[in-house]
Computed example of a mutant assay.
Amino acid sequence: MKIIKEYLDSLFLTVPITPETKKAKEDLLAIMEDHYHELIAEGKSEHEAIGAVISEFGSIDEILAELELEQEEEYESYDDVESVTLDEAFDFWAVTRRFAFELSLGILLLALSMASIMFIGFSEIFAFLGLFGFAILVAVGIGFIISGSMKYVREKRKLDDRPLARDVHKEAFFQLENYDKSFRMGLSLGIGLCVLSIPTLFFFASIVYSAELGVSTFFATGGVGAFLIIYTSIVRNGFKKMTNGQYFVSDEDHPGPRATKHSYGAAAPLMITMRKFYWPLVFLFYLFWSNLTGWESSWIIFVVAGIFYSLVSETFKRHK
């Protein structure tokens, strides 16, 4: 049901906020939810029902035409930039999957390297194999992390601050819903393994009387759990990026000029200026104040600055 609401929110991104459009959006949500429940009653699965509801409703232009409402003009012209196409979206999702796998595998190998080094205390041959395995696993693991990250960053830069085509929005919601079951299973299993690694440690240390084996098993089990959590979360976030807003945002903390203007309207120049100078100025003030009054409690400056920044951001943000 959350997917349906998010999809409807994405359709109304460029619709002016009026009592009529709010009422139309609420009515459409009620109709879509009713249709969803009808399909569930007919024996459709949750995924099939959501997919059918989304596919049976037309584009926002058709919906607004039927409701005799108008879509507001874009905040800026797209003449200087092309929208992200469906092919580019699929390419991005493929790169995201590779990045998720390489990053997760790299972290798993680092965890296994810690597991292998625990064997150095058993015998000389185990010590050699443990150190050799540690060195190899660390090198390969870091290699995977760096390689995957560089490819992923390059792909995000290609799409950054570009408007998302409507068919991309729609396909992203389909992909997000389709992956939801895999995400829940992977996340649950990953958390379960991470939790299981703790009693496993105590079991080998207390029952088998082998602390080394306990720590080794702890890292191995936790590493597999971390692999599942990180992999499924990154893949899901790749789909989610194509459903959040009208523009592709590479870095959520530093959206581009177009995405910022879409979110903040006339206040966009203020927010862009704040992102450039606010935190450096806060840091300089922190150094000045700490030297003046002492370092014991001056860290509170960052807490207050963070709260103030969030308040300013929310105050000027355009809420659809």
Rank of each mutant, 00 (worst) to 15 (best):
A268E: 10
G245V: 09
H35Q: 13
Y264D: 02
G106S: 06
A127Q: 11
E26P: 02
F203G: 02
K44F: 13
T21D: 06
W289Y: 14
S45Y: 03
H169V: 02
Q71L: 12
L187Y: 15
I63E: 02
Y231I: 00
A49H: 11
S113Q: 05
A259V: 09
K261S: 06
L64E: 08
V249H: 10
K261Y: 11
L228P: 11
K240W: 04
A49I: 10
V282C: 03
I136F: 12
S182V: 08
I301N: 12
S104C: 03
V140I: 15
L287M: 13
F227Y: 14
R318T: 09
K181Q: 09
M114G: 14
G225T: 01
A172V: 06
V304I: 15
G58D: 15
V249N: 11
P255Y: 12
L69D: 01
Y36R: 07
V224Y: 09
E48F: 03
E62H: 14
F57S: 11
G190Y: 09
V140D: 05
I63P: 02
L112F: 07
K5R: 15
V235E: 04
F203D: 01
A205Q: 06
P163S: 05
I54N: 09
L13S: 00
A266C: 00
V224K: 01
V249W: 04
L164K: 15
P257Y: 05
F57P: 01
E38M: 08
G223W: 09
K156V: 06
V138F: 14
G294D: 00
V138R: 09
D167P: 06
T315G: 00
G133M: 03
A100L: 01
Y75K: 08
V215I: 14
F119L: 05
K181L: 13
L311Q: 01
F285W: 12
G214R: 06
K317A: 09
E62F: 11
Y209R: 13
S210Q: 10
M32Q: 04
V140G: 04
F203V: 12
M242D: 04
K241S: 14
L29D: 00
E38Q: 15
A127E: 07
T293R: 08
A139L: 12
E33K: 13
P255T: 07
I3S: 07
F174R: 15
F183V: 01
T221S: 11
E66P: 00
L86M: 04
D161Y: 12
G43K: 05
V138G: 08
I207W: 07
E73H: 06
F277L: 15
F227H: 03
H262L: 05
I191D: 00
K261I: 10
E46T: 11
S113I: 02
N237E: 13
N291F: 12
S123K: 05
